[in-house]
Design a binder for these strands. Sequence first.
DNA 1: GTTTTACTTGCGAGTTTATTGCACTTATGG
DNA 2: CCATAAGTGCAATAAACTCGCAAGTAAAAC
Lengths: 146, 146
Amino acid sequence: MVNVKIQHDCKDELNGVELRATPARIALMHLLETTDRPVDVQTMISFLEKKGIQADPATVFRIVNMFTEKGLTKQIQLQEGKSRYELAAQNDHHHLVCTKCGDIQDISDCNIEVLEKEISLKKKFRVTSHSLEFFGICNDCQKKTS
Amino acid sequence: MVNVKIQHDCKDELNGVELRATPARIALMHLLETTDRPVDVQTMISFLEKKGIQADPATVFRIVNMFTEKGLTKQIQLQEGKSRYELAAQNDHHHLVCTKCGDIQDISDCNIEVLEKEISLKKKFRVTSHSLEFFGICNDCQKKTS
DNA sequence: GTTTTACTTGCGAGTTTATTGCACTTATGG
DNA sequence: CCATAAGTGCAATAAACTCGCAAGTAAAAC
Ligand SMILES: [Mn+2]
Ligand SMILES: [Mn+2]
Ligand SMILES: [Zn+2]
Ligand SMILES: [Zn+2]
């Protein structure tokens, strides 16, 4: 009974939101499920290439837009002039971005919700989402002599 | 003694950071000083045109980069795929971005510093800056029947 | 006030990120 | 297996932004 669950192929996730399970989409879902940081389109293209799936940039842009539209992924922008994508299933969290090595870490348990409520009341602004990012130097980079 | 202080020409601010006071720079400093929301490059170009100063986009991009480098302005990105700029002299604050009309309001007094300290300790990440934006529907847009 | 010089700008070319139309291909349901 | 709707590749296009270089100008030196 070893290896009964060989490796799921994301077919269900994709068909579940009325998207066809194409090689590129399956591979990208795997990538997103196994990566601990938000992924940009260029990284996706390289990843697909390594897997033997050549995909046109236009296609990958269309895929991530679809994924986001269907609620599979969340699009985030970390002041880089490009978008990154991560699974929407993850609970609300934010990021630590190292301005030296580019490392991106998740942080949770920021009780921003408290702030949100204050804003709703004080400013009469109906908050639907927020983005909070911290920039600085990660632990590793602090150790490096530079 | 009316109108003794005609209208200051930002020459001091500019020369103070070793930048020459050119017409475009002076006009843009005025714009930034009198606008209550972060300004993007296209808006700057239109503004200059209205003032009779035609400026090449490359020049305006260079100007805002210089301003930011010299510490006159802060560059911010509100998930729009482009940068906006506001005076760095303003105290630390964040923004409410209406996803309907594009309105941008300032918010201050978010004690993010508390969070920053926690992160420094827990994650050993040296925070140098942060970005916090709330997206939603502004008061005016809530009233509109849509 | 004129000259000098370093700083600025305009222009053109080029890069990166992203979108769109259209013909061709493929996943999916029957 | 077939039909068809959905997806993809390719080419064109667009917006944001950068860079080199020649020409222009602000500021300082005379
Ligand atoms: Mn994340
Ligand atoms: Mn502001
Ligand atoms: Zn780092
Ligand atoms: Zn609004």
